[in-house]
Every structure is written in structure tokens, then in C-alpha cells.
Design a binder for these strands. Structure first.
Lengths: 266, 266
DNA sequence: ATGTTTGTAATTCTCTCAGTGACAATAGGG
DNA sequence: CCCTATTGTCACTGAGAGAATTACAAACAT
């Protein structure tokens, strides 16, 4: 059996979206066929013929396939654009329901807010990007951002940066000059520099090169530092708030030293 | 333990989005707490304390909670708007990946297209609505739509109807006059009528009232008929294409008879 | 009529998940 | 400094979903 890589990709994604293996394979199989019977499908994919029927029924409920109740039964996938629209609609619906539900619940009585050293860890590209966006929007005086990896300069981030008020200092550093050029091109209003922090390029320790992700300092009182795990490529971050926060203090000190070569635009 | 209904709702939705029970409960629990420890969480929810840690780790990878690595560890949920944005981004990403993958795969060699009676069954609100939208967009001459249930007159449907070209006959029927008024209000360009088909109001057979959903006839050659299951409220449809299609023929005949009381606007 | 195809159902094995308890490490108070 | 309650990690169990296979009855073609 042939299994083009795109097919495997699609199957994988469909499973993340909640289908099981048979269902995912059947759907992808059907998108490759104008119309198909259980037999054809089981030949094209590696779903046992006798289990195609169950899978199709589930797919039908999802709104992803149509069934012709003849004998033998014929199946066909809903046109791609329709299928995508249906899935979008489905998840948009869930997300909205969640939003509503959580909006109207929230907060149980709370005693004391601990005033101490708060350093929080989070992970995940999307989540960290969202947090960064929130912080940037909240800034009132100064934004210092160092981008350690090209892959982090996403469309979303660029949009957020370009929405920053004119009277806020926006300073963006990179680890390499090519990346600096890229930043200049897409965020013209920012002051850019190439970071003097060579250690950011990766630990010299043997193999395990943890590379820097981003470094974001807002109004000298809130800091977000992320790194990218070498194996999984997943992004991890730590996050501290408050002028007196230990992490923020260190960050300011780093800034004062090597981070920005000349304190003003080069 | 108290469990406000919204909490249960949220937990349910989160599970549909791919979290397991503990993870869902922990997240909802954390949104009710500014910050919490494993113990607090296990008291608020009914997640065993010893399993809170696993759940939180997963949530952290999803980008939904932050962890403070102190002792005891502190957890807190990402702000609601951030969480929603993260989930949206996640699923949007999946859907796009799926779109791309399927776009570049498609079609295996195909022999014959069966020219016969094709009547397809599909189900699901969203899917049927999407299909209806596609059909309406493809119409060139005439659109006849009968709406059997108020719940089907969604925003999406109204939008689609209002985008119809002026030179296409747009005829919309309802089962009741109040609903007709509603339609007139939101789709002013349509010719409306109240259907003469009393049997649409529900089978007289004992209990099992299957009520009509929608009935859509495009250019007298494509038909979509849906019904709403009385117990589950789920929508089911059958769909036929081609002027000679048996279902379409029947549909035309019904039209000629009782469906539209006076063939022209009343 | 008969042999093949088609659809349903039951069965096995595996793996995840819900739920629980054992145990070492770690506070924090006397 | 010691003792005890708290905290974090693991390992285990039973139940249920999913993957894979087989048996069998209904429908079909020749």
C-alpha cells in the first residue's frame, strides 16, 4: 500500500482533532476517491473492511461524509472546502461555549495574595506568543525584545509590534545581522541592534544546545525569557513581574551590561 | 463539593477539545482561583491530589497554565482571553495543516462515474448548513427554500441568502406566519409564503414526531431535504442532484401541488 | 441454485484513563 | 534538632475505548 506523506499528515491531524485512526484514514481515503465502497476503501487504506462501516457512520455524524444507502453502500467525502468549514465551525462553537462558560463562573473567595518572588513557567509557542502580545500591549514606556530564533518572528508578533504606540521606546535585538535586517524590514519603527550576548548562541556544554528563544522586558519591570528545547523544538518560558522581582533585577543588570552594545541606536 | 452548572459545562467542552477529565477539571478549578496548590485544587475539584501534578503538566504544555516551581508548587491559569486565544490558535493551526495536506493529495485514478440515481445522506447542523450555503451560491435561476424550524434560520444562513444575485428567484416558505414575518424582516428581497403542506408539521403516528427541517430546491434540479430527530434534536438530510433524479422529480411534483399556495407572491 | 459480495456482530488484545495507595523528600513548628 | 504533617513521585488496579480479526446472515450476480 502506498502512503504519500501528505496522507499520513492529514491522518495525524484528524486524530488530533478527535477522530480515531480508522475514521481518519477513511476520511482521507475518501477525499482521494470521488466515491467509494467499503471494499475499495479498505483496499486503499489499511482499515479492515468490516470496520469501515462504523467509521463512516461516525464521519457522517461529524458532517464529513455522505452516504448513499444503496447496495452496496456508496460513500463520498464532503467537498474539501465544506469539510474545512464544518470543522472550523465545530471548534469555533466549542471555543465560544468555553469562553461563555468560564466568563460567567470565575473566582472563588480568595484570602491572601502572596507578595513574594513570583516566577512562573509556561510552555508552548502559541501560549508564549499570546503572553508576549498581552505584555507588549500593556507597555507604557519601553519595550525591549531580543529575538533569538528566526522562527519566532511570526506574522502575529509583527502585527503586535506594529501596533505599539509611537511614544513608547521599541527596541528590538537579534543575534545575527541578517535577522536584524529582516526585523528592520517588517517593523520599521523599531530601534534595532545586534545583541552582544554571545552566550545566547548556545551553550558550549557538549551536545545539549539549548538555544535562546526570546527575551522581553517591559517597562523595566516585567520580564519574559524563553528558550527552545533542542530535541523537541518546543518553546519554554519563564516570566516575572514587579520592579523588585529577582528575575527582573537580573534582567535589568544584563541590559546595563552587554546586551545593548551602544545604549542608543548604532 | 459545589459544582455550578457552568463549571460542568466548561469541563465538558474542554474534554471535547481533547483534555481528559482531570485536566479539564484542574483548568476550570484554576480559573476560579487566582493561584492554587495541588491540595487546594484537589479540594475544589474532585481530582485526587496526587494526580493534579500530571494534569497540570499537560495543561502547561497546552499553554493553559503557568507553574511556579517553589515548594509547594503554585499553579495558576493563564488569563481567560489568553487561554481562548491559545486554543483558537491551536485549532486554527490544525485545520490549516489539514487543509494544506488534503489540498496537495487528492484524487486517485478513477474509472467510471456512476450516472445513476444518486441520493446521498448526511447529518449534522453545521454540515447541512454548509452544504445549503454551497448550493445557494451555485444557483443560477431559482432558489426555493422551506424552513420548517425556527432554529435553522441562523445568522450564517441569512447572510448567504442576502448575497444571492438579484436576477435569481428567491422564494422562501415557512410553516407558520410568525416565522414568515421573521424571514421577511431579515431577508427583504425574498418572496415569502406559508407552506400549504400540513403534513410537514409532524407525523400523526403516535409519538415519534419527526419534524421537517429544511427543504431546498435549486434550479429545479438539485434538492436537499432535512428533518430534525425528535429525541436528539440532530438534523439529518438527504440530497439529490440532476434533473432526472428521482428525488428531484418528486420534489418538483410536490412543488407543483400544494407546496406553494399561489404560484406567485401572495 | 449457488457461490460471491456485503453488512452486522461478537471476540480478543492492547492501551489509555479514572481512581487509589505506598513511599521518599521536604517543609515548618515545637 | 527532631518530629510530624505536607508535598511530590510512582506504581498498581479495574473499567472502558480502540485496534484487529473472525463468524455469520442477508443481499446480490450469474
Amino acid at each position: 500500500m502506498d502512503t504519500p506523506e501528505n496522507v499520513e499528515d492529514a491522518v495525524e491531524v484528524l486524530q488530533k482533532l478527535g477522530l480515531n485512526e480508522y475514521e481518519a484514514q477513511c476520511f482521507v481515503g475518501l477525499t482521494r476517491l470521488n466515491t467509494g465502497t467499503a471494499k475499495k476503501l479498505s483496499e486503499l487504506t489499511d482499515v479492515p473492511r468490516t470496520r469501515v462501516y462504523d467509521a463512516i457512520r461516525v464521519l457522517e455524524v461529524w458532517g464529513l461524509v455522505e452516504i448513499q444507502h444503496s447496495s452496496p453502500q456508496q460513500f463520498r467525502a464532503v467537498p474539501l472546502e465544506e469539510a474545512i468549514a464544518t470543522l472550523r465551525g465545530q471548534y469555533e462553537g466549542y471555543v465560544e461555549r468555553l469562553h461563555d462558560a468560564l466568563d460567567t463562573v470565575d473566582v472563588v473567595e480568595e484570602d491572601d495574595e502572596s507578595p513574594v518572588q513570583q516566577i512562573w513557567a509556561m510552555s508552548g509557542q502559541t501560549a508564549i506568543e499570546n503572553r508576549a502580545a498581552q505584555l507588549i500591549k500593556k507597555a507604557t514606556d519601553e519595550i525591549v525584545l531580543v529575538i533569538g530564533d528566526e522562527s519566532l518572528l511570526t506574522e502575529n508578533l509583527v502585527d503586535t509590534l506594529n501596533e505599539v504606540d509611537d511614544d513608547i521606546d521599541l527596541i528590538i535585538g537579534t543575534l545575527t545581522e541578517p535577522l536584524q535586517e529582516q526585523v528592520r524590514a517588517v517593523v520599521p519603527d523599531a530601534t534595532t541592534f545586534v545583541s552582544g550576548l554571545e552566550w545566547l548562541h548556545g551553550e558550549s556544554t557538549t551536545e545539549n544546545k539549548t538555544s535562546i528563544g526570546r527575551l522581553l522586558l517591559i517597562d523595566r519591570s516585567t520580564i519574559l525569557v524563553s528558550s527552545i528545547l533542542p530535541d523537541t523544538k518546543k518553546e519554554q518560558a519563564i516570566f516575572g513581574e514587579g520592579f523588585g522581582n529577582g528575575l527582573v533585577v537580573i534582567a535589568r543588570r544584563i541590559m546595563a551590561h552587554g546586551l545593548i552594545p551602544a545604549r542608543d541606536p548604532q
